[in-house]
Simulated assay, not measured.
Amino acid sequence: MEEKVLIIDFGSQYTQLIARRVRELFIYCEIHPYNNLKVDLNSFKAVILSGSPFSVRSEDALHFDLSKIKGVKPLLGVCYGAQYIAHFNGGKVIASNKREYGRANLSEIDNTDPLFKGLKTGTQVWMSHSDTIEDLPLNAKCIASTNDVKNASFSIIDELVYGIQFHPEVYHSVDGKQILKNFLINISNIKPNWTPDLFSTKTILQIKKTVGSDKVILGLSGGVDSTVAAVLLHKAIGSNLHCIFVNNGLLRKNEFQSVLNQYEGMGLNVKGVNESKYFIDLLLNVKDPEEKRKVIGKAFIDVFDKEAKLINGAKWLAQGTIYPDVIESIS
């Protein structure tokens, strides 16, 4: 069984990049919003707190109870996450004299700390924040600085807790991946044994166990997300998967038939529904883009619902979508 990392999302634009870097290290991770964390914390080996557009000094600061994590599991705070750990554990975060955005260099590094193993002084990092940590908690020590940011990184003594005010997940942080590797593999002792193939195999087994011999209906868009979902479902339940691919009249020339042929070539049980005239007629004289979006959305639901009712005995509705959509739907 793979060892997992929990990424708690505070709304950062870079959260998905954190997950990508973690998985590039062959470690499985999951992103969950700070305000809807319905998971078993015991099932995760380490925790990462993301950045955020909010300030820990603000009345609108995003709060999360760290009592079951801090000092219990290895914890890494990135930007807002680092400031949150410091500010609400006896430290002090203040507004920076100027917004710190862009490239910077670590002018001082504590090479005895395992977080910076293999890094050299001067390595480039990426800053993106308007607050800075003025004072650390009493039981913390500074382990890296830049010319402008004294407490660019800190650790809490006798706890596997770290904070960094830069973003190791972005390309511009040259040794960012090494820092994440140090935290996850060297400090948290996570085995890097996760692969996409392992995820695929596990997902197919879970579908078989959950769905059994029931019928499943899936709407296909022609895109990557719904297609991946269809292939995984097909491998799990075969012809009990019923796919519906609707032509809304807005596809490129000959795309409907081309995509339909590809789906059939994959062995999918798919029905193509050409409702292009229906959609185009509804959109006639509709000029406002937002209104067009609503018309298209409602029309698709009506068509899909009509076709779904023709499939007798279906008990499950499947959806393939991207990770950010899942996070936004439950946050």
Rank of each mutant, 00 (worst) to 15 (best):
A299S: 15
F199Q: 08
R23T: 14
G249V: 02
F64M: 02
I190A: 04
G212L: 05
P192E: 04
Y263L: 05
G272H: 08
V5H: 06
I187T: 15
V161R: 00
F116W: 05
W194Q: 11
K209F: 05
T123C: 13
F279G: 05
I133M: 05
S43H: 03
K68L: 04
E108K: 01
R252Y: 03
I280L: 04
S258I: 10
L282K: 14
D305G: 11
I296G: 05
R103I: 05
Q16N: 08
D9G: 10
R57F: 04
E2T: 06
S58N: 07
E328H: 13
K298S: 11
E291C: 01
K191C: 09
N36V: 00
F154N: 11
S52E: 06
R99Q: 09
L62H: 04
T203M: 06
S331Y: 00
L66P: 04
S128I: 07
N186T: 15
G222S: 11
F256G: 05
G222A: 12
A140Y: 10
V224W: 00
Q262C: 10
G77P: 09
Y84E: 13
S130L: 08
G320S: 14
N111D: 01
E307P: 04
V286S: 02
L260A: 13
E30V: 04
S221Q: 15
S276C: 06
S55L: 02
G297E: 03
S145F: 02
V295P: 08
V125K: 01
T210R: 13
E291G: 15
N42A: 07
A229I: 06
K294W: 09
V56C: 11
A318N: 03
K150G: 01
L251V: 13
E100Q: 01
F116K: 01
K98Y: 04
K117T: 07
E59K: 09
W194F: 13
A86P: 02
I164T: 15
L17H: 03
L136S: 11
H167V: 14
P289S: 06
I217Q: 15
R99I: 12
K208R: 02
D158W: 00
L284T: 09
Q165M: 07
V72Q: 14
I27C: 02
I190L: 12
N35I: 00
S55K: 11
G77A: 12
P289F: 06
V22D: 04
A104G: 14
F88S: 03
L160N: 08
P192K: 13
V5W: 00
